[in-house]
Amino acid sequence: MAIWQYTFQILPKESLSTLSADSYFGISENLFDDESYWKLYLIKRNFFHAIQKILPKNKSWSSEIDLYGHQESNCFEVISDNEGNVISVSFRIDFTTNYESILSNILEFCGLNGLVILDERIKIVPWNYEQAQSVIMTSPQVKKYNQLLKKGKDLGS
């Protein structure tokens, strides 16, 4: 992930109520393990082909990853197992671009398809553009990016 990107995880909504409280948001060593949430509801990778209407499908470095958009900019990634079952879904927003339409369309896709969006603190993000944008704009990445930008301008003066 680049400093100019903010990452969101996506989960099937039903899996949140099905898993027990002990395994809720399986976090270990500061890493979020979303595979157990996807394994409860076998969804094939082609479920996400509609994302091509939002971000063009591109070649990934792995045959197990469907990459929509560009790795270093706005992108949506679907990771699947050998049988084509989804085991992880995430998307990154490049906050230095005009991402409004992309974010709005991804939020709508998730809302219409019963998918929950989580921020980097593993908090549920509503399917609301203003709230999702607020998560991005108050993130440590945006703060750090702005500090570096200011520092660069100060050095150039």
Rank of each mutant, 00 (worst) to 15 (best):
124 I>W: 06
149 L>S: 10
116 V>S: 10
140 P>Q: 11
82 N>M: 09
29 E>G: 08
104 S>L: 11
73 S>V: 03
96 T>F: 04
24 Y>I: 05
110 C>D: 05
105 N>K: 10
93 I>Q: 01
107 L>Q: 02
44 K>C: 06
15 S>N: 03
23 S>M: 12
135 V>P: 00
115 L>K: 00
125 V>E: 03
87 I>S: 00
146 N>Q: 11
96 T>V: 09
154 D>G: 01
123 K>L: 12
4 W>S: 10
37 Y>S: 02
136 I>Y: 04
41 Y>T: 12
111 G>Q: 11
67 L>R: 03
132 A>S: 05
44 K>V: 03
69 G>L: 07
55 L>C: 03
143 K>S: 12
65 I>E: 08
154 D>V: 08
145 Y>F: 15
143 K>V: 10
68 Y>T: 02
61 W>N: 06
103 L>C: 07
44 K>A: 08
151 K>Y: 11
22 D>A: 05
129 Y>A: 02
11 L>Y: 01
41 Y>P: 02
150 K>S: 12
44 K>I: 06
136 I>S: 02
5 Q>E: 14
14 E>M: 11
7 T>V: 14
36 S>V: 13
99 Y>S: 07
66 D>I: 07
137 M>D: 05
52 Q>R: 14
115 L>N: 02
95 F>W: 05
92 R>K: 15
128 N>I: 11
111 G>M: 04
1 M>T: 12
138 T>L: 14
99 Y>P: 00
119 D>S: 08
42 L>S: 14
54 I>R: 06
26 G>S: 13
67 L>Y: 00
121 R>G: 08
4 W>C: 07
154 D>Y: 07
121 R>S: 12
118 L>E: 04
33 D>W: 09
3 I>K: 13
36 S>T: 13
120 E>F: 03
28 S>A: 14
108 E>N: 14
35 E>W: 05
101 S>I: 12
38 W>T: 01
23 S>T: 11
129 Y>E: 01
145 Y>M: 08
59 K>T: 14
146 N>L: 13
137 M>T: 12
44 K>G: 08
131 Q>Y: 04
148 L>V: 09
51 I>Y: 00
113 N>C: 07
81 D>S: 06
138 T>H: 15
112 L>M: 15
129 Y>H: 07
101 S>Q: 14
71 Q>Y: 13
146 N>V: 08
125 V>G: 02
157 S>T: 13
102 I>V: 15
110 C>S: 09
6 Y>P: 00
145 Y>H: 10
15 S>H: 05
8 F>C: 06
95 F>T: 01
69 G>H: 01
119 D>H: 05
10 I>V: 15
36 S>A: 13
92 R>T: 08
89 V>L: 03
59 K>M: 14
100 E>R: 15
12 P>K: 07
39 K>W: 04
11 L>C: 09
59 K>W: 07
133 Q>K: 15
74 N>S: 08
41 Y>F: 15
54 I>K: 03
135 V>I: 09
84 G>Y: 05
34 D>I: 04
108 E>L: 13
49 H>I: 12
65 I>T: 14
33 D>V: 12
33 D>S: 13
48 F>E: 05
142 V>P: 03
43 I>H: 01
55 L>W: 01
141 Q>Y: 07
137 M>G: 06
89 V>Q: 02
143 K>C: 09
87 I>L: 02
43 I>M: 07
67 L>T: 05
155 L>Q: 10
152 G>M: 14
